[in-house]
Design a protein around this nucleic acid. Structure first.
Lengths: 254, 254
DNA sequence: CTGGCACCTGTCCGAACGGACAGGGTCCGC
DNA sequence: GCGGACCCTGTCCGTTCGGACAGGTGCCAG
């Protein structure tokens, strides 16, 4: 992937559209905006359906549980089968994820890989019309989660033009997903307002007594909120509660 | 700033170069890479000198102290005067920073603002050859710091072509600076290896005794390292120490 | 060789924390 | 009306923390 590729395979209109797409990705904050963003991408390369998910990772970097899913025309039958049969364990794409910081073209994996298990996997996917497409997965910089998304469409990756656009576009889709993730986390309130308030004081090193004065409640009430927050965040003490809340984006850095 | 501007004011070569610059910004991790990045930008628009700094902010969002500076041909006399005479307090550009998420063209401020103080400021800057340029400042997403950079050059902002490129380029320079900032923070070791190790356990809610077992040292030694870390991070207890270390990027989210 | 830094260790003690036992209240949806 | 959220309060008690006193080592630059 070089600048020469850009000039060779892309028209001026393509370049304008790609730059504009990157700019739109920068502005993306909400799930709806992300869907519009994918619509924009679909106008540029033949994406028929796409599926984006954000997942938490365990300490080894493996996918622990899925947090959000943004599905655009992706065959629900496939998603069900994928989840129910835990196909992620045999997904040749998932195996390669997080290893490379470039999108993975299904066709390339298929060619380089002739194992029976992989052929079976692609056979199943093809039953749902998923033949041509790419996947991308990358960790978020400051949290133990990652984005993981796939786009499919006839002829999507058989053209150097498409592949070039995808290469340049994908990292910004990932950043957009990161921002969507943050906004979604805040919109589905795991913690109550009081719990957040207490954590915000605890992060500054305030004692329970300090916080009780600041909030105009008893010291016991502070301990109550903190205990609830610790329970919800699976934290053993206030330090861990603050660390988890920060890394999840549940409290800010003010 | 629209896609139409892109097509109207930029040639195909411009578009290729801008996209390539954005891609290079994505790869940028170190100070040297950032300097190369600015060289790339200088090949596209007539940037003669540039100056980038990363600063910590206080709770009101005002600049507290400067952390890093990356200076490329910026007149050192001006920088000295700026620092010594605390010109930031009267810098018309700094006043507008963090308000807008778009770069500020000096000429536009100059036209819209006819106060004597501002004229005096620009007079001083002009003495050092700083007549035409732009500045940009934005907060980093997850830390209480911000990037703040200026580029100057004859005719830099008198052309719609230049301005269009700058508009699309600037957010990615900012992200690049954020990454440079993180790598610089880790390379200039504020904390000792042991202090980092202790904080990394504390973030998981481990007690001093737990940590002492994990590290194979006495509980007293753990308290010793933690106390030193707390002192260096201006933290009153372990919760704050963990929060500060996390937000400064001194420890990771593993 | 000496000062400085990082590393490690000990004891004491008051303050802070976190768990477990309680008990109140309001408001909202089913 | 009643369960279920949030919100708030109390006491007791063992554990943990953090500060203050103290001591030691090894290594490296000036």
């Amino acid at each position: 992937m070089t600048a020469a590729d850009l000039a060779r395979y892309l028209s001026k209109y393509d370049l304008v559209a790609t730059l504009d797409l990157i700019d739109a990705a920068l502005q993306t904050r909400t799930q709806e905006q992300f869907q519009r963003l994918m619509g924009l991408a679909g106008g540029l390369v033949p994406i028929e359906n796409s599926h984006a998910s954000v997942a938490d990772l365990d300490e080894h970097g493996a996918i622990e549980r899925t947090r959000h899913q943004i599905n655009i025309n992706f065959p629900t039958g496939w998603l069900q089968a994928y989840r129910q049969q835990r196909l992620i364990t045999e997904d040749p794409v998932a195996k390669h994820l997080f290893v490379s910081d470039r999108p993975l073209i299904w066709g390339q994996i298929r060619q380089s890989n002739r194992e029976a298990a992989d052929r079976r996997f692609y056979g199943r996917a093809a039953e749902f019309g998923l033949r041509d497409g790419f996947s991308f997965g990358a960790r978020f910089v400051r949290s133990r989660s990652a984005s993981f998304f796939s786009c499919a469409g006839a002829g999507l990756t058989s053209d150097r033009r498409h592949i070039t656009i995808i290469q340049y576009m994908v990292p910004h889709l990932h950043s957009a997903l990161a921002k969507v993730h943050t906004s979604l986390l805040k919109s589905q309130p795991l913690l109550t307002p009081r719990e957040i308030e207490v954590l915000n004081w605890a992060k500054f090193g305030k004692t329970n007594w300090d916080i009780s004065v600041q909030m105009g409640i008893s010291e016991r009430a502070v301990k109550y909120h903190l205990a609830n927050a610790m329970f919800k965040l699976h934290a053993g003490n206030r330090s861990q509660a603050v660390a988890v809340a920060l890394s999840q984006g549940l409290i800010d850095w003010g």
